[in-house]
């Protein structure tokens, strides 16, 4: 019998269940991802995508199952800042009085002292991260004055500054301009080459085909999981979206 070496997996979620006050949000979900893999998380609203993210980051507790991050517990992944979460634009208070620089610096908080005083290395990491998302001209701009795309790039920069090996992105392409979309696409390729593992939720089926090596279709539980070319079939998509045909979702051409 083959023994599984859990160290090989960046993310290893085994039969996880999450319920909120007895209401099941996700059950028996499995996911295994290796370094350098990009996986699309596809499902309807309320299918458990955000819950899945919350479970992986430890923001909600799982009621059953097991999650290992690099073979360790979620708690030690938090301590090591292994996972970076990039929220949806709707998920943040854009009126919060905070600048691009301060948001990106938050990516370094986990490795700073209790007063969160930035060291030289933190300042450099933040500068580099902001340069990579092309926002160097907006260092002190309040996030409320940014466009949707610029705001998305700010949070991507925070994840870069954090130097996490796993990136969880909630709808990275929603509400962004063409320029940002192109920049994010290029970053994905760089991340992949750097060996980062990416899990992204999306409504856009075209992006799944374009970027994702793997796809996880969920509807409260896993409908299908595997290589995009094999799993991303009209039948599976129809099941995931509760009987709606893929023609309706992304045109008859698909």
């Amino acid at each position: 019998m083959e023994t599984i070496n859990y160290q090989n997996f960046r993310i290893d979620a085994e039969n996880i269940c999450v319920d909120y006050n007895g209401k099941v949000a996700l059950y028996d979900a499995n996911l295994r991802l290796k370094p350098g893999q990009i996986c699309g998380l596809v499902g309807m609203n309320g299918a458990g995508k955000t819950t899945f993210f919350n479970a992986l980051t430890g923001f909600v507790n799982i009621s059953k199952g097991k999650i290992r991050i690099n073979g360790e517990s979620v708690r030690s992944a938090q301590k090591d800042q292994t996972i970076a979460y990039v929220p949806q634009n709707e998920g943040i208070d854009s009126q919060f009085p905070i600048s691009v620089w301060d948001v990106v610096m938050m990516g370094r908080y986990g490795s700073m002292n209790i007063f969160r005083c930035p060291r030289e290395s933190d300042v450099q990491a933040v500068k580099d991260a902001i340069a990579r998302v092309d926002l160097t001209d907006h260092l002190s701009t309040p996030i409320g004055n940014l466009s949707g795309g610029q705001r998305k790039r700010t949070f991507l920069a925070r994840a870069i500054a954090q130097r996490a090996s796993i990136l969880l992105l909630d709808e990275p392409f929603s509400g962004v301009d063409i320029r940002t979309e192109k920049l994010i696409s290029e970053l994905f390729i760089q991340f992949k080459n750097e060996g980062k593992t990416i899990l992204l939720s999306t409504h856009d089926m075209i992006h799944v085909r374009e970027f994702c090596d793997l796809v996880l279709l969920i509807n409260k539980t896993v409908v299908a999981y595997g290589e995009t070319s094999e799993v991303f079939t009209p039948e599976n998509i129809t099941t995931t979206f509760g009987g709606i045909s893929p023609d309706f979702l992304f045109g008859p051409e698909s």
């Binding site: 919350n54 980051t57 430890g58 923001f59 938090q78 301590k79 090591d80 800042q81 996972i83 970076a84 979460y85 929220p87 943040i92 208070d93 919060f96 905070i98 938050m106 990516g107 908080y109 986990g110 007063f115 969160r116 925070r158 954090q162």
Partner: peptide
């Protein structure tokens, strides 16, 4: 001061980086 600012702004990120 800074942790509380982060907590008010983005508690999920705070949790993710072990705060």
């Amino acid at each position: 001061r800074k942790d509380l600012m982060l907590y008010c702004f983005d508690p999920r990120h705070a949790k993710t980086v072990g705060i």
